[in-house]
């Protein structure tokens, strides 16, 4: 049974065991507008919680994507290189950015729940 948590930087992270999948939220994708370029991390790279892990660019600007939790990258979503528009079409599904292993459940538990994140977005 997987669970999804959210950050105030508008990333989502889904935890299955000690493996996490990370992407940007629907709200973030809408705010960015049409995504035209994504740079995902290579497998084997170690990232700390809150560290820069990926880049997403819309027509207008580039934004960093941070790792919501620490871990080792097992895979970047290679499909985004050819089809960055997947981030807009399905931000919390096919548009995922990277996967991490060795994730701490404590770090994960500190992140916002769906209800907390929705409340956070409403207050922006």
């Amino acid at each position: 049974m997987s669970e999804v948590r959210y950050t105030d930087q508008h990333e989502w992270v889904r935890l299955d065991g000690d493996t996490a999948t990370v992407g940007i939220t629907k709200h973030a994708a809408e705010q960015l507008g049409d995504v035209v370029f994504v740079e995902v991390p290579e497998a084997g790279r170690k990232v700390g919680a809150g560290g820069e892990a990926a880049v997403v660019e819309s027509v207008k600007a580039a934004s960093d994507v941070y790792a919501p939790v620490g871990g080792e990258v097992t895979e970047g979503n290679a499909a985004l290189a050819d089809e960055p528009a997947k981030v807009n079409a399905d931000p919390e599904g096919d548009g995922w950015f990277f996967k991490l292993k060795g994730v701490s459940k404590d770090e994960f538990a500190k992140l916002m729940t769906k209800a907390q994140y929705d409340e956070f977005v409403k207050g922006l």
């Binding site: 507008g33 049409d34 035209v36 819309s58 027509v59 207008k60």
Partner: peptide, 12 residues
Amino acid sequence: PVQFPTGVLKEH
């Protein structure tokens, strides 16, 4: 207006 609901790619 920086963009309309059409979106910048389609607007262009």
